[in-house]
Design a protein around this nucleic acid. Structure first.
Lengths: 342, 342
DNA sequence: TTGTACGCGTTATCAA
DNA sequence: TTGATAACGCGTACAA
């Protein structure tokens, strides 16, 4: 069984004894082609099961109708939700999605970016790995005119497009709720200090305390590398304090899970002896018995969708060759929302 | 700011006053090219920041070094875990992953498949939507020589490559465990009847009962459309029986969550008044208080990885033009494993 | 060891 | 309304 090549416009042309250019135009319903010819071409195309060779088109048009999405980890709920939103948007625009994960390894991130670049994706959506501190490889893409929209985990730069989530509002609402319930000893288990996301949480935390006229107690601020062991260690550190916190805000849901487990081991009753609030990345608290009082929702789906929207607006604009590089950087910040788990 | 075209071998050739073929060969370290020339070419390529235009190569070689992955839903843990495994394997092979989701809509499935076909992916990994009952569009791909490896949700045909998971072993082990604990009234909340996966579960369930010398009681077999309401309704139906089951096996973890919630509403204590076993798709039981006694693990990551492995073995083989279509269909079935949640 | 010439499938320009 | 031809970037058979 020989591998037969898919039909081309050339074949259609030959069978119909017309030129390839006529076929091409007929297939695109070009007005200059006669009605009958157009009809005959379409019929023959149907008959031969013709499909345009996208690789040839991409090559010629310098456009692949493909966007690249590079995320730290596809199996994390937060990111897989986001990618679902991105895919939906892209599908509507008849674009394809090329996917890669960095696994939080900067080297892998660079490699994946490289292959996406050589594959000539039209644009990219990127959430940077938590260990990335050098953004040169991203600038490289800019040079070859591949726009990037950063998503959620963004570099600390101004000359970029991005979507992100402002954690402040949600966190401050959380604190107001905690204070209303009588909590004053509110701790924070944060992520790695070098992470931008950690900084944001810390700042918001301090601001929240301030707005509620609570002094910052440094012992209540601990951090974890986000490994299970790190999480447990951080929580244990808090529980070892003479004056224990009565409420704990955690960097994310996974951390909350680990911290709550440690609390339970210490015979503490969740949401009685000690309350939790976490930054959301799990969708299933509603089913769980021990759960945080509330989560601070960051809307991965909406964020992903928006990132895609921004990217496509850039792509469209740059194909109207007139106005290149005219628009400013698009930076959309969603407000986090407090979701209580009654 | 003009969009400058990326450098090509032509440019390198011109600057070095040699021919493009020499450049091409030098870049591939062809032995026939002199050492010095090779060196000069590499240096110039470096200098100009040359990168081969993959779209041109794909076009010429009729090979895109891209595989397509089409899954029902990227935001479901089971599938996002799988895709993580697939991506890892593909990355090792320097392949790209084009991703799409059907959202269980056969029309969307068809559309996505179509665009992947026109984009000339080298091969595909597909988990079919639960509403798909016509496989013509998959056969189309076969015709144009794009191999497909089906994954987990596979069509009922023999002439395909696939990886899947045999649920029987895990389920029978589950039943043995249940019987050992004194259960004889074991119910099954199954998925939609037309789903292959439901059939498999039902067959395994019957076999499991048989091996334990328990009669099949039809009232103990109910099914759900897998919506939250459907799940609750199914569980309520079981609880409404005069002679209630003492153990319930559920189609998947989500169903177990809903069913357990209903049980709790009825003042039943999980794993005392009524026990659960589910087919696994959630990774976080360890953290939950109410959880099934055990889950039947289906290894999405391993399955995904294996599917990728099979696909690449096919791709490699078909590039050794000698032996086309020689090999048989590769069909790998993993055994499910019972994982207890002590 | 290197260069010339061609073709992959499509679209665009120019000519008829 | 249609056709001939060039071009996109690369690899390669053939020639030198």
């Amino acid at each position: 069984m020989k591998r037969e090549k898919p039909p081309t416009i050339k074949e259609i042309a030959k069978k119909l004894k017309i030129s390839t250019s006529t076929v091409s135009r007929a297939l695109h319903n070009h007005p200059s082609i006669g009605y009958i010819t157009t009809l005959r071409v379409h019929k023959m195309a149907e008959e031969l099961n013709y499909q345009p060779n996208q690789t040839a088109i991409s090559f010629k048009q310098r456009k692949t109708y493909t966007i690249g999405v590079l995320l730290p980890n596809l199996s994390e709920a937060f990111f897989s939700t986001a990618i679902s939103g991105i895919e939906e948007f892209a599908e509507q625009q008849k674009y394809n999605v090329l996917m890669g994960q960095s696994l939080d390894d900067p080297e892998r991130e660079k490699r994946v970016l490289e292959t996406m670049k050589t594959h000539r994706v039209d644009g990219m959506i990127v959430s940077i790995s938590k260990n990335t501190d050098n953004y040169d490889h991203f600038d490289q893409l800019k040079k070859v005119n591949i726009p990037i929209v950063f998503f959620d985990r963004i570099p600390e730069k101004n000359d970029i497009h991005y979507t992100a989530c402002n954690l402040e509002l949600g966190l401050i609402n959380a604190m107001v709720m905690l204070v209303k319930r009588g909590h004053t000893k509110i701790a924070l288990i944060n992520g790695p200090e070098k992470l931008l996301a950690s900084n944001q949480r810390l700042e918001a935390y301090k601001k929240g305390l301030d707005e509620n006229n609570i002094e910052v107690d440094k012992r209540f601020i601990v951090s974890s590398d986000l490994s299970k062991e790190g999480n447990q260690k951080a929580m244990k550190k808090l529980l070892a304090l003479k004056s224990r916190p009565t409420a704990v805000i955690t960097f994310n849901d996974y951390l909350a899970l680990d911290a709550m487990a440690v609390a339970k081991e210490n015979q503490l009753v969740i949401n009685e002896d000690i309350s939790f609030v976490s930054f959301a990345n799990l969708p299933i608290w509603a089913y769980m018995d021990s759960r945080p009082l509330a989560s601070i929702e960051q809307f991965p789906f909406k964020q992903g969708e928006k990132a895609a929207e921004i990217l496509f607006s850039i792509l469209k604009e740059s194909s109207n060759e007139e106005s290149i590089e005219l628009s400013e950087y698009q930076q959309v910040i969603f407000d986090s929302e407090l979701v209580t788990h009654g």
